[in-house]
Simulated scan of single mutants.
Amino acid sequence: MTSELNFLELFLKAGIVVQIVIVILLIFSIISWAIIIQRSRILTKAIKESARFEDRFWSGEDLNKLYEGLENRRDVLTGSEQIFYVGFKEFSRLKKSNPNAPEAILQGTSRAMNLSMNREIEYAEDRIPFLATVASISPYIGLFGTVWGIMHSFMALSGAKQATLQMVAPGIAEALIATAIGLFAAIPAVMAYNRLSLRMSKLEQNYSNFIDEFTTILHRQVFGKNHN
């Protein structure tokens, strides 16, 4: 007789409540990994595209020509390209309607770019908070399954004349698997959440810096012409 049990055997021999807990935790883990892979790809792409566009922006290319090039594919713009497109479009519109109000032009342009940035950040960080939820509740769900399973194992001994460790050990092992699955779901989720949050902060800072730098250029344009 062997004392080794594989996961499937532990799962099948566990009570219905413990089985439900394990299934819930496995679903959480699968969803978490799907989010981790998807968001990692999206953030990597966003950071690379941001750097690529800013290199082009600072290459000395005429801003009007840059805007016209983006106009041709405005429906697929993302990140810094979208922020620049929205900002320059609003800047041009305000400059035509309020040519003698440079402060209003800059404020309106900055507001439009910040709204665009917020939409880009919202899209990039979509579903990431779910990882924090999984990280925080999975251990407790697993612990609930374990406590329930152990309690059920000891209650089954109530009618036994002589209780031994050998009688309760299998039930305890089946119950403890819930805690293990809870940690299996929580640990990658919390690590990924922290890493993705740092990358989100970096991306948001990149966008914010670009807005500040672009606004400075537009400031020189409107006030320079206004002073002349």
Rank of each mutant, 00 (worst) to 15 (best):
Y207K: 08
E125Q: 15
M1R: 12
S92N: 10
V86T: 14
D62T: 03
T215R: 02
Q205T: 12
I105A: 02
L143W: 12
A101E: 15
E120M: 09
F154H: 07
N228Q: 15
K45L: 11
D212W: 00
D212Q: 03
A163N: 08
A14K: 00
N64L: 11
G108C: 06
I24Q: 09
A156K: 15
K65E: 03
F88L: 04
D212Y: 00
L8G: 01
I217T: 02
I27M: 08
L43T: 10
P99N: 01
Q205E: 09
T215N: 04
V23K: 03
S59G: 06
G79R: 08
L198Y: 09
Y67N: 03
R111Y: 14
T164R: 13
I16W: 10
A124V: 11
R41P: 00
K89H: 13
G171T: 02
S40L: 09
S208T: 12
L203R: 01
I150N: 03
G171L: 07
I150E: 07
Q38A: 14
K45Q: 12
Q205I: 03
G145E: 07
V86K: 07
L10S: 05
R111L: 14
S3W: 11
L203H: 04
R56A: 13
L106M: 06
T215W: 00
R220V: 01
T146Q: 05
K161F: 14
G69S: 12
V21T: 11
T44M: 09
F53H: 05
E120S: 07
V134D: 07
H227I: 10
L8R: 05
G149R: 12
